[in-house]
Design a protein around this nucleic acid. Structure first.
Length: 485
RNA sequence: GCGGGUGUAGCUCAGUGGCUAGAGCAUCUGCUUGCCAUGCAGAAGGUCGUGAGUUCGAAUCUCAUCACCCGCUCCA
């Protein structure tokens, strides 16, 4: 109990630090904010870009058999019929006012029919079933038709036993929009609820020009949109979010070995970000999605509990099969070596970019007592830190700022750096600690004599004396070899 | 969406019907300072989430609305 509370206090601290330091803040704040949307500030965008860069590097550049794409957010509406989203993301829901629980109206009626049957009320069951089918096909009138059945049959709530229902409301988790300025029925489109479909529909478009053979993968980073019923917990669950996905196409029957490979690889990637391994774990899905034959999540121990960060799913040939069916195009792959034809199976790795950023913030944040004072630090891996190094003149006179500016200009060629001459040294160090800057370079009076500066380490607060012309190398080496102590 | 809670300065919060709404931290300026939130002096920053109502008078009471937090459900 106490630990839950401290944990949520920690979460609050991170949220407020994000606002204060310009990392992440609520979107459209001056208009009162927009629910579950957040903007990345100057430091946040750097962090996010570094994460993307690191992912792209490890996926696309480190693997000869993985190609990148950047598909449009707007896709042909048939895409979502084929993927199953039009159906699966579209539920008629009803609330029990007594318990506050929510149910799917159609399932409620189905359960009711089952009960009638087991009570031997065959005739009534058949009648209700007929009306249910009718209601489900009533199009826009479906919610009202379902509600009418529940009211007429006086179906009580399964948990509370109460008969105190709200209206049946249609929840569509996909964002709707229109193609073209005229809002006609035929122009209705959706903002993609996942990036994966942009990869599947382009299977041929990527495979042919790149001359890739199965097994091979397609990677993509991009935005997706979902009208979540409950979108909360800072950037953990947003209505507009960014995914980093790789779909790996394999020969049917080999999916298990590839699944195991990616499952291991992806865990390793998170560790490479400097995340504490104790805060990462696998979680197997008990209930599989309509498209999957195996599904594991990688979870992170957020201050708000263990939560899903990445999904590794064995998606079978469901997606390609369906797109072949709905588009009428042949998506069969011909294996020139084995001289056989098949629709490839897919192993998917799909990680939330915003969740990764949140994980990094949570994992990096720590406080310690230094001389009776609290020091707050974001201990990012130096290679993903928003600012790699800060340059300070010890005092802002006697030529020190000029030397510091020269160093700044030189280091800018390699890293994102920041110059600061305001306030005391102590304050400047602490400011950079909160921004997660791993190195602070100070130009002092000795610099004028021997062209060396001090480099202060964020984590240990210890200083090294380094020659100015060795600074870039020093930072590169220290960054590459950085580990969580 | 439903139930419960919250909304006052950039951040954390005090103020609960009555003078020009405050504190700490942060920010800015000047001096001081010479490697871990230094000291002194000063400044800026708020139509009290928004809108309406009650009242002689509203940050404070009422209603609506928006946002956030905690639970219920789903996912990246």
């Amino acid at each position: 109990m106490t630990s839950d509370r401290t944990m949520s206090e920690l979460f609050d601290k991170i949220v407020s630090l994000c606002k204060q330091r310009g990392i992440i803040f609520q979107s459209s704040e001056i208009y009162g904010g927009l629910s579950a949307t957040y903007d990345y500030g100057p430091l946040g965008v750097e962090l996010k870009r570094n994460v993307k860069e690191h992912w792209w590097q490890s996926m696309v550049y480190q693997n000869d058999d993985i190609e990148g794409v950047d598909a449009a957010i707007l896709m042909h509406p048939k895409t979502w019929e084929a993927s199953g989203h039009t159906e699966a993301f579209n539920d008629p829901l009803i609330d029990d006012k007594a318990s506050g629980n929510r149910y799917r109206a159609d399932e409620l009626i189905e359960d009711y029919i089952r009960d009638l049957r087991s009570d031997g009320e065959e005739e009534q069951a058949a009648d209700v079933h007929e009306r249910l089918v009718e209601a489900l096909n009533a199009g826009d009138d479906m919610p009202e038709a379902l509600h009418a059945i529940i009211m007429e049959e006086e179906i009580p709530a399964p948990d509370s036993g109460a008969f105190d229902w709200t209206d049946v409301r249609q929840f569509n988790l996909m964002f709707e929009t229109h193609m073209g300025p005229l809002k006609e029925e035929g122009s209705r489109l959706f903002l993609r609820p996942e990036t994966a479909q942009g990869i599947f529909v382009n299977f041929r478009n990527v495979q042919e020009p790149t001359r890739q053979h199965v097994p091979f993968g397609i990677a993509q980073i991009g935005k997706a949109f979902r009208n979540e019923i409950v979108a909360r917990q800072f950037v953990f669950r947003m209505r507009e979010f960014e995914q980093m996905e790789m779909q790996y196409f394999v020969k049917p029957g080999t999916q298990d070995e590839h699944f195991e490979r990616w499952k291991a690889d992806r865990m390793e990637w998170h560790r490479s970000l400097g995340i504490d391994p104790d805060n990462l774990r696998y979680h197997e899905h008990e209930q599989l999605s309509h498209y999957a034959d195996q599904a594991f999540d990688i979870q992170y121990n957020f201050p708000i509990g263990w939560k899903e960060l990445e999904g590794i799913h064995s998606r079978t040939d469901f997606d390609l099969q369906r797109h072949a069916e709905y588009s009428g195009k042949n998506l069969t792959y011909y294996d020139p070596f084995e001289q056989e034809k098949y629709i490839p199976y897919v192993v998917e790795t799909s990680v939330g970019l915003d969740r990764t950023v949140l994980m990094l913030l949570c994992d990096a944040y720590y406080e310690e007592e230094v001389r009776g004072d609290t020091r707050s630090v974001l201990r990012f891996h130096p290679e993903i830190a928003p600012i790699r190094a800060a340059i300070f003149p010890l005092v802002k006179k006697e030529g020190l700022p000029e030397i510091a500016h020269d160093i700044e200009a030189d280091l800018r060629k390699h890293f994102n750096v920041k110059y600061d001459e305001r306030g005391s040294m102590g304050k400047r160090y602490r400011r950079m600690d909160e921004a997660g800057t791993p190195f602070c370079i100070t130009v002092d009076f000795d610099t004028k004599e021997d062209n060396t500066v001090t480099v202060r380490d964020r984590d240990s607060m210890e200083q090294d004396r380094v020659a100015i012309d060795q600074l870039a190398t020093y930072i590169f080496d220290k960054s590459r070899n950085w580990t969580l102590e």
